[in-house]
Design a protein around this nucleic acid. Sequence first.
DNA 1: GTAGATGCAAATAGTTTGCAGCAAT
DNA 2: ATTGCTGCAAACTATTTGCATCTAC
Lengths: 154, 154
Amino acid sequence: MSIKTYEDAEQQLRDYLTENGLRCTIERLAILRAIWEHGGHPSADIIADQLSAGKLYVSRATVYRTLDLLVDSELLCSVKLGEGHRHYEVNISQHDHIICQTTERVIEIRDEELERKIRSLCESRGFCYLSHVLEIKADCEPADNGGKEDSNSD
Amino acid sequence: MSIKTYEDAEQQLRDYLTENGLRCTIERLAILRAIWEHGGHPSADIIADQLSAGKLYVSRATVYRTLDLLVDSELLCSVKLGEGHRHYEVNISQHDHIICQTTERVIEIRDEELERKIRSLCESRGFCYLSHVLEIKADCEPADNGGKEDSNSD
DNA sequence: GTAGATGCAAATAGTTTGCAGCAAT
DNA sequence: ATTGCTGCAAACTATTTGCATCTAC
């Protein structure tokens, strides 16, 4: 379940496909690879463009169908960054996002204590925790931080 | 800035309109009221239907334009619940959501400690905190909780 | 060979926009 | 009277779907 490399991801996809009687097509592998190589939080549109720009044309319909499949197989999760359209990211482990409202830069954060707090809030209200999405809207501190650091352009 | 009653909200809207040379129309008031009375997290569509079902027909175009205006005036904020379309809620104060994946019921939570934790995570990374959106996906515990409680149907 | 996958194009859903007429100030 | 606001219809963007063709197994 812990995916570290692209090969792990591809194997997990192959397993999922086999278990479900689905086929391993070049389009599916190419889409998985494109997202993996993007590294950020691409949208369906960006993935389609990236593929077409490269070697393999894949229709938008297939991109969308494959993204759903990759989410179902838990290789990806969909994140809601801006309004209007979905973004996807590799489902390595739960993490959250800080989104700079000025530069639109997205940085990822991970914090055990926060995670525990969220789970406990959920469970104290009688729910069984599944997952969460946390987006923090912020600004690069104008005073002492010009806008670089752990950059992760989308 | 602290809105408690519909009257407060209406006054804030009137002030905002005046300050910006905009007009106070029955459509704008009706939309504000509809959202206030809904109490949950309605979508543009639900608001339009609610208004038409009632006394006043308001076109979707106007509903969307007014929702933007109400967000600009900080009377509402938009929340992303499901995929595909926006929802809006009265901007009383920061709070988060637990969304049951089985029943789609949404409950609101508010927790000071969580709030502090999120701010501090943000600031420790050199960002100036603005706001956040936290959605917890969960399930009503099947064992001891059939699916009622602090219900808040959308 | 067969069931599942793809591309295409059309359909849908949500939202935005141009414009002519309407109404708040 | 003026300028902003509304409804309508068309445009747009993101996503989904039906169907004929293609391909992995």
